[in-house]
Amino acid sequence: MSDVVERLTEVFRSTFGDEAIVLTREMTADDVAAWDSVSHIELIYAIEDEFGIKFSARDIAELSCVGDLIAVIERRG
């Protein structure tokens, strides 16, 4: 498991309060109960904090699955 996925898993677990989350690249908001439009921005802030990066509004708008998130983190990181 890559370092990014490991750190991202921790961010997901702490943001959504669900210690059972196991990430896959295909995973979308529909797969995580607490991941809705309101908590999406919380997730973004938490990821920015963890990886020390800043997403653009376009990045955020284009995200549709965990794989997209990882791609942005790797590009911005």
């Binding site: 943001t15 309060g17 919380e42 802030y45 938490a46 904090d49 963890e50």
Partner: peptide, 14 residues
């Protein structure tokens, strides 16, 4: 810190 507080708030909810 947003992240710490948001996460703490979510645990408190539980």
């Amino acid at each position: 810190s947003f992240r710490t507080w948001a996460s703490a708030a979510r645990i408190l909810d539980r």
